[in-house]
Nucleic acid binder design. Structure first.
Length: 774
DNA sequence: GTTAGCAGCGTTTTT
DNA sequence: CGCTGCTAAC
């Protein structure tokens, strides 16, 4: 590896440029490194975006490339936006003149529109959302005479997506995959692609896969872009999947000025086809590559950094970095256990209120500076419930997305059909919404007629009417529908038409708004509200076409309200962000690390989960609080949880174990909440033998290590041996003897309450020592 | 053809 | 528990 320092020193002497001010030597070296392949290994909070954007500014300022000759790729729209903003700030308004800065997918679309005919598409192809995709899959599955119950569309969608991520076209799927999906995966994949082509449509995976195919089959086209893109920059390289990797490698074979920025410790998208191996292999893939390490962290206190490092150290096969910081020590990472998920939410709510008032060793923290990062979206509910009741303002990132709501999709299907008459999926979605008396039978007739005339469903419908193949109420409704679409299509085809008014007319005259107005359900008003918001969103575009294109790629709703709110989001969504105060709830085995990840990917899965833990901790600047609950509701059933194995990996000297109020009965629980409806957590819990044993050891603030705390809880919540005759304790029924067991369902003969059947997770082992009557 | 009511299922993470 | 999708009655 090349030592970065000499490079930077040479450059410093040569050319003082204002945009280079404030870079540390490593960053500066990275910015000014000579041409050729460079891998910037940038740990969390080391200023990688800064180095990347400054590199772009540097290329432009030194005249090495014009704005449109730089290909700069990110993974998320958020990252692309940020990059644009920051480059713009560095060098003025040039960022808008950088057409090739964006996500893999948005750049993929741009390329594909230019060369669509090379993969059998027209340049006005539509991009399917997940909903359309699934409906298409269902059609393909039933056309293949497979039982949709046994072979669900979701599974096929996942399979095909995984194949596309590996850059396999149907012909390229290796024979080892043949058994997939009842031996028919490959066949169905091919059928699905055929359908897409007929529909002149693409799914998300195609946006990359088609590009790769074009590059591979048309060297002239590839050469043209290789010449054009003098510099290629890639953010979050560790998240690259095979298709993206090939895409990059093909393009980078020209000028070889490929610069990738990444952190192997933050690779968290393996489930989407990303392979850590890609970044680990960089030097081999690109001979002569220079590796630059950014290791000075500007974000987090030493305790936080050390805690994160301690956890990630358990992973094998890392490239290895030693993050350091010169910030003051600050607070240790806090660890706390709770009785159940609701208490965890309650406690965090109160902590946040205390933090806002400046009662937690830090200066008052504003809500915007506080984030709760969860492993899985369903964890958010407990926090939302709690925060609503105490009136704590919050925002959820990545929750139910605006553009995925039913009413928005319906309205957009109307727009799609009006813009492109052959959009059969849009037709299917709205032909009977609102109800027009055109049910399964009428729709099947339309399908048949369409096949008969060899056209779109719209053509088929027209033919059906002409033939008189549809009678009664349906005929009139269908005629009205067709006339409407035709009329609006004419408007949409005129240059400079008022697209907002047209959109309004469409949802009005089609009867769509009327449908919701007539709807008496409580959420109808909200849906009408959303439709208004949709019309407002149109203002930022010139045409319906332009709007639809945008929405297909940017499914997130950026309602960046100015209001001060606490943020709730998943760990995945949090990558790249930072907050003074971070809460990491739900550190329980099965939830985090997630059971599914472990089942599907074993040790590799655990390692990816561990990287997720690393990402989580390193989001925090000043205060990081990890928590777990002993019980959690899953599918409405209470389940006992074990503290996460990652807790053992937290270095004790950087962590304070807080006295869990719920576990010792201090302040929360019984006194405050008795009389409220009975949850698993209430009143009696403090009498269970395990918790009593914990209580006997006394409050342990700061005196216990994470590992000991975890062991204590595991001990206390240990399930009874499912042996007949075992003595157990239940919160409500008291002590009893196991008289039967079937898997995790026990039959217990309780001393006072009689014989009960219940889940093993509801009882704890009763030790003779603790068998004190109460 | 539409609607109400129930059975069965599922929860990682996202462009 | 809450949603989807299927079946039975209007």
């Amino acid at each position: 590896m090349t030592d970065p320092l000499p490079l930077s020193m040479r450059a410093m002497a040569a050319r003082p440029a204002p945009y280079l001010d404030g870079l540390n030597p490593a960053q500066r070296a990275a910015v000014e490194a000579l041409d050729g392949p460079v891998l910037m290994l940038a740990g969390a909070g080391t200023g990688k975006t800064k180095a990347l954007t400054t590199r772009i500014a540097h290329l432009l300022a030194t005249g090495k490339a014009r704005p449109n000759e730089i290909l700069a790729v990110t993974f998320t729209n958020k990252a692309a936006r940020e990059m644009k903003d920051r480059v713009g700030r560095l060098i003025g308004e040039v960022a808008e003149g950088m057409p090739w800065m964006g996500t893999f997918h948005s750049i993929g679309v741009k390329l594909l529109r230019r060369h669509a005919e090379l993969v059998g598409l027209k340049s006005n192809f539509t991009i399917l959302d997940t909903d359309d995709q699934l409906r298409l899959m269902k059609q393909v599955i039933s056309a293949a005479n497979l039982d949709e119950k046994r072979w669900p569309a979701r599974q096929l969608a996942g399979l095909i997506d995984a194949w596309k991520n590996r850059a396999w076209t149907p012909e390229q799927v290796p024979s080892s995959e043949a058994p997939q999906f009842n031996n028919r995966g490959t066949e169905l994949y091919a059928a699905y692609q055929d359908r897409l082509r007929t529909l002149n449509a693409c799914d998300f995976g195609d946006l990359l896969l088609h590009c790769v195919t074009i590059f591979q089959r048309h060297p002239d086209v590839l050469a043209q872009y290789q010449r054009w893109f003098r510099y290629i920059l890639v953010d979050e390289y560790q998240d690259t999947n095979v298709a993206q990797y090939l895409w990059l490698r093909l393009l980078a074979q020209g000028p070889r000025n490929l610069r990738c920025v990444g952190d192997d410790d933050q690779s968290i998208y393996g489930w989407r086809g990303a392979e850590v191996g890609t970044i680990l292999r960089f030097e081999k893939d690109f001979p002569g590559a220079v590796v630059v390490r950014l290791e000075q962290n500007y974000r987090s206190t030493p305790h936080i950094l050390a805690a994160a490092s301690g956890v990630i150290a358990a992973n094998a096969g890392r490239l290895g970095k030693t993050l350091w910081t010169d910030l003051d020590d600050g607070e240790k990472v806090r660890l706390i256990g709770h009785w159940d998920g609701e208490e965890e939410a309650r406690w965090i709510g109160e902590e946040i209120e205390a933090l806002e008032k400046g009662r937690r060793a830090l200066d008052p923290v504003s809500p915007n500076g506080i984030a709760i990062l969860v492993r899985a979206a369903h964890q958010m509910r407990a926090f939302e419930d709690r925060f609503l009741t105490i009136g704590l303002p919050y925002r959820v990132i990545g929750g139910p997305r605006f553009y995925e709501r039913q009413e928005i999709r319906d309205a957009m299907a109307y727009f799609r059909l009006v813009v492109s008459l052959e959009d059969d999926l849009a037709f299917e979605r709205i032909i009977n919404v609102p109800k027009r008396g055109l049910g399964d039978k009428a729709q099947a007739d339309i399908q048949r007629a369409a096949r008969g005339v060899g056209g779109s469903l719209l053509d088929g419908a027209a033919a059906l009417i002409a033939q008189g193949g549809i009678g009664g109420r349906g005929a009139g409704a269908l005629r009205g529908f067709l006339e409407g679409i035709a009329r609006w299509h004419v408007v949409a085809s005129q240059p400079g038409y008022d697209h907002i008014r047209l959109a309004e007319t469409i949802i009005e005259e089609s009867g769509y708004t009327a449908m919701w107005q007539a709807d008496k359900s409580p959420d109808a008003a909200g849906r009408l509200e959303n439709l208004k918001e949709l019309l407002k969103a149109l203002e930022q575009f010139d045409t319906l076409q332009g709007f639809l294109e945008h929405v297909a790629l940017i499914m997130d709703n950026e309602t960046d309200e100015a209001a001060e709110k606490v943020t709730i989001m998943t760990l995945h969504a949090a990558k790249g962000l930072e907050y003074p105060v971070v809460f990491l709830p739900g550190w329980e085995d099965g939830l985090f690390p997630s059971q599914r990840s472990m089942d599907e990917s074993g040790l590799k899965g655990v390692e990816e989960e561990r990287r997720l833990a690393y990402v989580g901790i390193t989001r925090a600047e000043r205060l990081c609080t990890i928590s777990f609950a002993a019980n959690r509701r899953v599918y409405g059933q209470w389940q006992s949880q074990m503290p996460s194995r990652f807790i053992d990996e937290l270095p004790p000297e950087h962590v304070t174990v807080l006295t869990p109020p719920g576990l010792y009965g201090g302040g929360y629980g019984a006194a405050a909440y008795s009389g409220v409806e009975t949850r698993a957590a209430q009143a009696n819990v403090y009498n269970s033998p395990g918790w009593q044993r914990m209580q006997a050891r006394g409050p342990t603030r700061g005196t216990t290590s994470p590992k000991e705390a975890r062991a204590l809880v595991i001990d206390a919540t240990a399930l009874p041996a499912h042996d007949i005759g075992a003595r157990v304790f239940h919160q409500k029924f008291g002590y009893g003897t196991v008289s039967g067991a079937d898997g995790d369902k026990l039959t217990v003969d309780f001393d006072k309450a009689g014989v009960k059947h219940l889940m093993a997770s509801f009882v704890t082992a009763a030790d003779a020592v603790d068998d004190v009557p109460f």
